[in-house]
Design a binder for these strands. Structure first.
Lengths: 200, 200, 200, 200
DNA sequence: AATGAATGAGGCTTCATTCAT
DNA sequence: GATGAATGAAGCCTCATTCAT
């Protein structure tokens, strides 16, 4: 009996995850989730208080993972030299970020791209800003050496955005763990070369 | 002098453009468009057959611009050497793409990011694939020279995607024409260096 | 010693009584009763056939008490003189009615004020009519002596209603037995003086 | 066309008024109102924003009438002698209150008895308290002369309640203006004699 | 051209009740 | 007895669209 309960709950969660991923929060309907899970709409409410709770029960754990990861890794360092900076990027993205992509690809995409109407709807934007600030701060001495105008700042915004988008693309087209690792590596190489190129 | 009739049509179009941009196609309501245009909801139907037609009348012209631009510039060339390849990228993005950003930023964003529920909902994806193919084909000889596995192919996908996302960011944060030009230049420099870096 | 079975039944009854009192029959939910009784909703149905039966099992006994009381006391007498009439009122209300207020205040309020949607929804109204008829019949000779028009009849309706409302207020603000007794006494004095006053 | 609109609006209002009166706010359904008004449920929303607005559009005007009436008549006087006190009661209830009963009987009943779930759900209770305070204050010197315990205070509560209930009964069984006037007169006579009787 | 009026479909949610275990 | 699971009906409300004027 506990088994059956858990089975149906899983069916609801899977259906919901798929629909949130495909249509986003607002455009996902409880009716369609129920249909996909092959139960009545009202039965969903025996498992989840409402649409919000269903969404957050799926997404909050992954959100917290990301949040902790970022707190631990970005908030603690000082100004870095160019080499340390690039090394840190490699470390952060190659491993903890890679883990999330491997384990929670769908939820990651939902948080970043399909969460309009939820409390996470601006999370991606904020995250981009965080990454951007980090980049700008870390290589500020390089920038000063060349020409420190606002254009650089905006290109940094785009690069931060691109980095995140690249990781999301990995999540969206997930193949296997090795595939993720080697692509992250390439991606980082790409960005490092690109950023370096801006100052030469 | 503009007829009253034309004035109202413009009001509807402006209101619709704003809402499609802010909420996306599905979540935009005819009621809200009407409210913004200060006319009755039903009157919209005297100018546009329905919500779909209203959307397409706004977006199709820009879609065609983009389509033609791509047909003319990507579809006609042969394998290029590295230098010609980068030069072509510069030319394509610096000018015709820049024009679209300057003239149709809003419609561009709508097509790419807010068209779920319309026939354009997969356009961005397809465009990324087109760019990706072009990149892959153009530097296929370089890739062969090194290690031509699927990983490279996917990093090319990400780069194509990033290029588009970068341009969209310019559209989203549009300041002025000069700002666009100088950022496109930086962006291309960034990508060229990044791509080059992958093969060294 | 009370069996577990009986204990749970009591818990359900207490929870139901509280909710019927607070929200009325229709707005009381089985779910909330179950929550209050700390059992599952479905388990209520092992004790009571359905919501109606639960309600009636609580209310019928008190309804019958009231019914019998009224049958015994109102239905059996002849025309009375003014003094006998007032004496009878005093007797009826001071004791048997007082008992019900002291012992079944909650059920009394539920029957009279919170039974919409049940077979008792018009009971208060009917009771008022009964009291009214009794009053009218009993002092009909007095009324004839003065001016026997319909207005008098309606003021009698209001007085009957007020008498009942007054008793309900005692039930609603129940303090202790003595408090009930002394207030009933005052209330009757008030009504007797008021009625007498109408004929002078 | 304006005519038709107004006709339907009236039909909705009449249907709503009847149902609010019969079932109270919460138990009245938009569906039933629509059925009674012979239109579709959704069409109601072309006339009233939602169920709350429909209710308040019907009830607020009468609420304001009552509120103003009470502010003007109760809040302005000093301690009165017995005669002035009774005269004031007569004046207040005979005329302004009578007007409301004659003109807005249904809305009055809805406010007082059927407004659970709305912002008026405690209005009757507060009104009773206001009347009670007024009574207590005004005849406080009489009370002191006899025995000023809490019982008297509670009997005053009941009397205030009865007064209001009596007026509501007039509203509920409204016949015609003359009928209201003569019954109010009797009612007041009744209460004055009853109150006086408590102190002798 | 312009509007108000009208509607059916669909969206989220609560409810009383039944069923299997 | 006790519970979780399941459901259909009903409740409020929004939406795109059509129709009559």
């Amino acid at each position: 009996m506990q088994l059956k309960k858990e089975k149906i709950k899983k069916r609801i969660e899977n259906a919901a995850r798929e629909d949130f991923l495909e249509y986003g929060f607002t455009k996902t309907s409880m009716r369609n989730i129920a249909k996909k899970a092959k139960i009545s709409t009202s039965n969903i409410y025996n498992y989840f208080k409402n649409k919000d709770y269903l969404f957050y029960s799926l997404i909050d754990p992954v959100y917290n993972k990301i949040k902790n990861l970022l707190l631990n890794l970005f908030d603690t360092e000082e100004n870095l030299g160019e080499n340390e900076f690039f090394k840190q990027i490699s470390d952060v993205f190659a491993h903890p970020v890679g883990e999330i992509i491997k384990e929670n690809a769908k939820e990651l995409i939902i948080i970043m791209d399909r969460s309009e109407g939820t409390k996470y709807e601006n999370f991606k934007e904020k995250l981009v800003e965080t990454i951007e600030s980090h980049f700008t701060d870390s290589i500020v001495h390089e920038m000063k050496a060349i020409d420190n105008d606002l254009n650089h700042k905006f290109v940094m915004h785009i690069i931060a955005n691109n980095l995140l988008e690249g990781l999301l693309e990995l999540a969206k087209h997930y193949k296997n763990e090795k595939w993720v690792d080697s692509n992250i590596e390439l991606l980082i190489k790409y960005h490092i070369k690109g950023i370096s190129g801006l100052f030469n």
